[in-house]
Design a protein around this nucleic acid. Structure first.
Length: 302
DNA sequence: CGGCTTTGACCTGCGC
DNA sequence: GCGCAGGTCAAAGCCG
């Protein structure tokens, strides 16, 4: 990896962060316009994707050259500064329930790094909705702030995370997830986020689904890793899934603002590549057998 | 009193 | 082989 390439990458990352910060400021002024809000969120998502790719390339390149582990780039986050539910990469050496493994062997396993910005009025470092127990903290050479080591609060869970405060941007935190959650905390967290989103959107569109119904929809019985919600009426289809709460309009302005949806479809095990099909047109939704037959789903009339 | 945080010690991987 | 850096352990202290 050439020195120039590393320097250029650093410059690119810096510029991307500046752009993201400016977009965040702009977004604050767009509260009245849902479409602009959506566009701003999309741009922020692109910033995150670009930064993740750059960081991943830089890290993996450096690590490969040193013969250390490859650090995988973080998948794109759907909203700016929103910490994703950590879909952790598999840890093949899953720890057993008697967690205090005596081995202090340094982890050389796949990890995932994300960047999280602290917002005014929020806790520092920002919480991600999961319960973590701090087990260590140390200053690392050349870093202004200490690294903080956390592991999942569930005793039988092998997930860990390391939080590092960026020297040049004290409100930005690098969160590196390691290990995998073998407890159900992650699923519960996703369900709570989905519940909140569905309650909000259903309330805006119809407001007639009981909280109990929504909660039943969101509490997926099959422990599925990927779930989604589709709102529809005779004119429009709108898809939401638990990894992307940003409304994706099939038309402009935003469909949830102008349509009264009559159906809510709760889909389990949404294949990654079918989301766009739902979003693309009402026709896809009206003749979705080639897709839906692969899925299990609940159907609710509002 | 149980759970959590702090912090120094310990252990291991890696570069030289 | 040695020394350093980083990740983890675990005892002690704190807190509700």
């Amino acid at each position: 990896m050439g020195e120039n390439n590393c320097w250029e990458r650093e410059v690119l990352i810096t510029e991307l962060r500046k752009g993201k910060e400016l977009m965040l400021q702009l977004q604050k002024h767009l509260k009245q316009d849902v479409c602009l809000q959506y566009l701003a969120a999309e741009i922020l998502s692109s910033y995150d994707k670009a930064m993740s790719l750059l960081n991943g390339t830089a890290l993996s390149g450096m690590m490969m050259s040193k013969g250390k582990e490859i650090i995988h780039p973080a998948p794109s986050s759907s909203t700016a500064s929103q910490l994703e539910s950590p879909h952790l990469l598999a840890d093949s050496s899953t720890k057993s329930c008697d967690r205090p493994s005596k081995s202090r062997k340094r982890k050389t396993l796949a990890r995932r790094t994300e960047y999280v910005e602290a917002r005014p009025g929020t806790k520092v470092p920002p919480e991600d909705g999961l319960s973590w127990r701090k087990y260590g903290q140390r200053f690392v050479l050349g870093e202004k702030y200490p690294r903080k080591y956390y592991r999942c609060a569930r005793r039988c869970c092998g997930a860990t995370k390391v939080i590092r405060r960026i020297d040049t941007e004290p409100l930005t935190f690098e969160v590196t997830y390691g290990g995998s959650h073998n407890c159900d905390q992650e699923n519960n967290n996703q369900n709570e986020q989905l519940l909140l989103a569905v309650q909000t959107q259903v309330g805006r569109t119809a407001g007639e689904l009981s909280d109990f119904s929504i909660r039943e929809m969101v509490s997926t019985p099959n422990n599925s890793s990927s779930t989604g919600v589709v709102f529809s009426n005779s004119n429009s289809v709108f898809n939401m899934n638990n990894s992307d709460f940003i409304p994706t309009p099939t038309s402009s302005p935003h469909p949830l603002d102008n349509n009264s949806f009559t159906d809510v479809l709760f889909v389990h095990d949404v294949p990654e590549n079918t989301g766009s099909t739902y979003q693309s047109s009402a026709n896809d939704f009206n003749s979705p057998n080639h897709i839906l037959k692969k899925l299990s789903f609940d159907h609710y009339l509002i």
